[in-house]
Structure formats: structure tokens, C-alpha cells
Write a protein that binds this DNA or RNA. Structure first.
Lengths: 361, 361
DNA sequence: CAGGTCGATTAAAACGTGTCAATGCCTTGC
DNA sequence: GCAAGGCATTGACACGTTTTAATCGACCTG
């Protein structure tokens, strides 16, 4: 068998060294070890039930054959898969990335894989994603829903896939678990900060008004102004951006500044750090800057907020913990027989940096 | 049956309205429509093979029973699942997020779900993730490997899961498809820019040296200096950061500036925008700034790069297209019988902003 | 030594789907 | 009127795993 290999004219494309081997199943392992498939399964899942000697024999066979178990068969039998879904509004937003890290880490500890779905704030994509999770018979889901109603989530639960709501505080606890940061408190903290600095005309740059977070943070802001004797209706103007990203923030500056220097707001509070960063940039392009011409406050405390000049004053959310906690609630629902839906609230924290300052006159 | 429901002391936790229904399978649909399961399967997968009338009957049954197909059974039968893995080095890095969006969008068009795995630049986590994909019998994988060798990827392929390498230019095309941006050209462009501005002492702030990208970009930089008659060994100093994030960049400033104003570099070229942003911050904390005291160049053109002040000069990569192209190559490998491994190279593009300026004397 | 108990192992049945060969029916051509 | 052919549908099996009830053997006890 020496000399050059004969070229075979037809047949599968040459795979040379990286030959694809025929898949080896639990039966092959059983045959090799001289036991029944059931015993192999036991070795894999409840090693304590099988005698030391046979267990070692099986383990050796597993190793020799390089067996890797097939989770399709596993899930089919179990009626559910061992992965959970994570549905976010925007993969690109670092806030969600951080949340995802929290979810993934705790899921990983429990041996669950995470399927990341991206709704891009579109109801249609969300629906498709939810359906996909149902088809996969996902063990569970962590969901940040796009629109107000939670119909999709309920449907998913009816299909046998429990879900945890993330970043939505307004849902009653008997529907599902939920984890959120107190958005009202966040808006309140930002508002009080501005009031203390003497601001009396503030513009709220909101994301899409369908998002509960945006509405509630506004409510907090208004409460803070009312608290100090101002009329919220007169003191705060609302500008709505189409999406929660920097580009939209930059574009919105035009409208924020409308009315000329006389009626121009003294401060802008944004639903989001991305928006706020866009605003900072837009101001710069117009020869203005924070906090000299205008104070700017963001929300989330994304990593970037601390990197820009001036640093962005913002309301920090425990992003990683948010994701980790959501996943932990989900695990509780999956494992604890006596699970009760829970409603977890985190407290936001104001981080003061350079983008806000006292009104000077 | 009027009056309050009797409380049953034991049993499953009360599910009230959101009753979990018994799962409905293809057989239930078949029974309801008065056909065989096989026919239902055909309606779902090859509708053209079934007569108009029966097809409608089946479709109605599907609707009435709210049937959703079980992809575990499906994958078991098919021998492979309908999801692909995406293994990234760091979910938190916006560069990867953008790549992920590209992968996800094109995968979605092809009806594939994406499982996002995060190796966090740790070989152990990468190995676990690869194993998971094998267990899932993933249809394929897009992988950005941590360490130099591609053993994991080869093993995965031997298990029947084809993989596409992302952002690794140094792999020979007969192993697997690969998509990358020409890192040498990127480093070269950055280097030439600095040379043109008169810089003769530049520090390269590198990420972990295991990463091929970091090494090749350095090579490009050195080539640019050599090109103009400078001795690379004398002109460029290398500082290695532990991770590719802003925090490490900030910490590295200390070492970058070591030697005092006399021997201080005139420019810093970073493996990464995150590092560069960290450097900008670190400079600010020491009362220094770019480009006055030091020019700074990044890599990736992350969204933030355009938002900071001064804007970060950087080497832009087509992030979204990178992900989309990788996924498209994978799809080709999955569907085209006569697939040949391909090696796709994108060209980087220098984006000049405010963080670089001519050396003044 | 018979009866009983316990631990380890096995055989067989399910999970839900896709496929393939076989069946039945209707049309067409002679 | 009958054979041939085409189309729609069916029945049965296979995919890989887990689980339950049953079996087997060994050891202990009265």
C-alpha cells in the first residue's frame, strides 16, 4: 500500500485527515463494555447506583470510543431541552450584554445552555423568537418583552415553558417571576439631583413610549420636581426618540434645543446612556457642551459613561446581578416543587460625574 | 359546581388560569384531520406533495390544536439540530456584539437559531462550549478561538459539526472556512498614519499575546516604521495588557508613560478600542490628553470611538459583515454539495479623528 | 436448607419526528 | 375492458436516550 493514493473520481469530497466518523451512541458503548444500554445511562446520570467495577469498565469504553452524548434524544425523552432562552431588546446595547453575561454565568453553573434571541424591539421578531423557544421545548426563558402586554409570555407558559420577566416592574406576581430595578426611584434620584443643582426646566429624552421603563423613569422625574414645589407639566418637556441608541440621541438634540437659548432646557435627562452619549456628541457638534450649557443625565451606567469627557452622570443599574438573579429565579421555578412566583426589585444608584453642574446665572 | 373551589391540600402548585396543557404531537393532529402522521409531516415539510384538500384539512387541525412542532424529535431523526453555535471571546465587547448581530440575522433568514457561547478568553470555557455544541449536534459553529491551536475546532468537525473560523487569518484553508480582516494591513495603515504625522517613538499596547490578531497588528505597525527607514526594534516598544478591555487599558497607562517625559512615546497604538479608551481616560486622570501630549490610535471602530472627546482615531473593521459572511460560508458548507473551504479577507479602513496629531517640537 | 432481602443489572417501552417502500385509487392509452 | 402508469396516502421503522418493572445472583437468617 505504498505510493501515491489512487484518486477516486467520485465519492464524497476528500476529507483527508479530518475524517467524519459514524456517530457513536450509548449502545455502542454498552456493547464495548459488555453491559446493557440502561447501565451506561445509569453510569452517566446516577453513577452511585452502579457497581464500582462495571462503572469503571463503562467509563473506559466511553473514553476509548470518544462518546459524546446526544442531547436530542435526551430532550426528546425528557420532554424538555436543557437550554434556556434569553430574549433581549438589542444585542448591541452594552447594558443587555452585561445582563446576558449574568444570565449565562449562572445558567452555565446549572449546566444549562443559553440561546440568545434578539427582538430588536420589534413585536414580530419577538413573536418568532418565542415560537422558536416553544419548538425547542426550552427549559425556560428570561424575557424582556417589547410591547406592553405579556400575551406572548403567557402563551409560552401554556406551552410548558416557564418564563421570567426582566426589567419590567409592572407585572403582577401571579403571572410569572420578575426581576427589575425600581425605575421610579431611578427617575426620582436623577430628578432630585437636578433640582438640588437648581434646574427648573428639564427635558426628558425618552425612548419608545411603549417601553414601560421609559414611562416610569419619567414619572419619577416628575415626582421629584413636584416634590420641590414645581409644576411638572410646566417644568418638564418630553422628546421621544425612536430607538434607544446613540444615533437617535444625536439626532434628537435638534429638537431638544428648539426654541432658542431663551427657552432652552437647563438639563436633559435621558432614558438611556446611549441616548445621553449621543446628546453629548450632538452638543459638541454645535459648539455647546455639558455641563456648561446644559446638564446631561443618563441611565444604566454603561462602561462608556465613565470613559467620556466629561464623565456622564447617570443612574446605575446592577446589570450583571439583574441577569444572574433572573436566572436564579428561573432555576428555582424549574427545580423547587414548592415554587411561588417572586417579584424582585433592585435599587438603582445615582452616579454623579462631570456632565451635571449647578445652574449659574 | 358553584361556590368556592375546594382547596386541594396536596398536588401541583395552583396554576389558576395559566393551565399547562398536555403537549400535542403530530399524531394528535393526524387523528384530528383524519390522516396518517406521515401526511402531517409532509404538509409541514413538503407541502407540494400533498393534495390541496387534505393539506387544508391538516392546516386547520394544526391551528385548532395550536400545534407547535417538537424540534427534539426532529433533530433526533435528522441526526443534527437546527441551531448553530457562536463562540465569542467576550460578550461584553461591543465589537463581538456587532458580529453577533450579523451572524444572528443571516442565521435567522435560514431558519437557524443561534446559541451564543462565551469563552471569556479562557481555554477551559472554550473547551466546555465546544463540547456542548457537539452534544447538541449543532448544525455548525462560528468560532473565534482563544488559543493558537485549532485542535478543538478539528475535534468538533470530527464529531460532524463543521465550523467557520472568525477573525483568525493564519489558518490554512483546507482545515475550515475562515473569515478575517487583514490585520497586517490594519497595523500598516495605523503605522503609516503615525509616521506621516512625524511620530518616531510609538508604544504598542497589546492584548494577550496568544491572540493572533494582536501579534499581526504589531507586525503591520513595525512594517510601516521599517518602510520609512526607522528601526522597528528601536522605535516601537510593546506593553502587554492582560485583557482587551478599558480597565486594563487604564492600568497600562502607568507602564506606557514609564521613563519620564524624555523617553515617553509620542504615540500609542492599541490592539483594541477598549484599550484605547481606557488609555484616554488614564491620560486624563494624570492631567495629560490626546493628541496634545500623546497620539492615540485604537482598533475596531466601536460606536463609542466616535462619541468620546477627542474622537478616537482607529482602524475600522466591517463588524456586521464579518459575522454575516461567516454565517454565509457556514450555510454554504451545510447546503452546497460541492463546497470547498474558502478564506475570506476583508480590508480594514483607517478612520482619522481627533486623537492623533502631528508631532510638535 | 428454605425463604427472604437487597443490590446490581437488564429488557422493553416510550418520547415525536422523518422517510421509504408499499398500497390503493384514478386516469390514460391501447 | 384491461394493463400501465402516476399520484396521494399510509404503515412501519429508526433515530438515541431514560425509566420502570422485572430478573438474577449473592448473601443473610431462622
Amino acid at each position: 500500500m505504498s505510493g501515491p493514493e489512487p484518486t477516486d473520481p467520485l465519492g464524497a469530497p476528500a476529507l483527508s485527515s479530518s475524517e467524519v466518523k459514524r456517530p457513536v451512541g450509548i449502545n455502542d458503548v454498552a456493547a464495548r463494555a459488555g453491559v446493557s444500554p440502561g447501565t451506561v445511562s445509569n453510569v452517566l446520570n446516577r453513577p452511585e447506583r452502579v457497581a464500582e467495577a462495571t462503572r469503571r469498565r463503562v467509563e473506559r469504553a466511553v473514553e476509548e470510543l470518544d462518546y459524546v452524548r446526544n442531547s436530542s434524544g435526551r430532550s426528546l425523552r425528557a420532554g424538555r431541552s436543557d437550554s434556556v432562552g434569553l430574549l433581549v431588546l438589542d444585542v448591541t446595547n452594552p447594558f443587555f450584554a452585561e445582563v446576558a453575561r449574568g444570565v449565562e454565568d449562572t445558567a452555565g453553573e446549572a449546566g444549562l445552555a443559553v440561546v440568545l434571541l434578539n427582538s430588536a424591539e420589534q413585536a414580530g421578531r419577538q413573536r418568532r423568537a418565542i415560537r422558536l423557544l416553544a419548538e425547542q421545548r426550552a427549559a425556560g426563558a428570561v424575557v424582556m418583552p417589547v410591547d406592553g402586554d405579556t400575551a406572548d409570555l403567557l402563551w409560552l407558559r401554556k406551552q410548558g415553558v416557564p418564563g421570567v420577566l426582566l426589567d419590567r416592574g409592572d407585572v403582577s406576581a401571579d403571572i410569572a417571576c420578575s426581576v427589575a430595578v425600581d425605575n421610579h426611584a431611578g427617575g426620582l434620584a436623577a430628578g432630585r439631583h437636578l433640582v438640588n443643582l437648581g434646574h427648573e426646566r428639564v427635558t426628558y429624552l425618552s425612548g419608545p413610549a411603549d417601553l414601560e421603563q421609559c414611562r416610569t423613569r419619567l414619572a419619577g422625574l416628575r415626582a421629584a420636581l413636584a416634590e420641590s414645589g414645581l409644576d411638572p407639566d410646566a417644568a418638564v418637556r418630553v422628546v421621544e426618540a425612536e430607538q434607544l441608541n446613540a444615533e437617535c440621541g444625536e439626532k434628537a438634540v435638534e429638537e431638544v434645543l428648539a426654541g432658542g437659548p431663551r427657552k432652552r432646557p437647563q438639563a436633559v435627562f435621558c432614558s438611556n446612556d446611549q441616548l445621553a452619549l449621543g446628546v453629548l456628541k450632538g452638543l459638541g457638534e454645535r459648539g455647546l457642551s455639558a455641563p456648561g450649557d446644559l446638564s446631561v443625565v443618563g441611565y444604566d451606567d454603561v462602561a462608556t459613561a465613565g470613559l467620556v469627557h466629561p464623565g456622564l452622570t447617570t443612574v446605575a443599574q446592577p446589570k450583571y446581578d439583574l441577569g444572574a438573579a433572573a436566572m436564579r429565579l428561573l432555576l428555582s421555578e424549574l427545580n423547587d416543587a414548592d415554587h411561588r412566583h417572586e417579584r424582585l426589585r433592585f435599587a438603582p444608584e445615582l452616579v454623579v460625574r462631570g456632565s451635571t453642574a449647578a445652574v449659574r446665572d
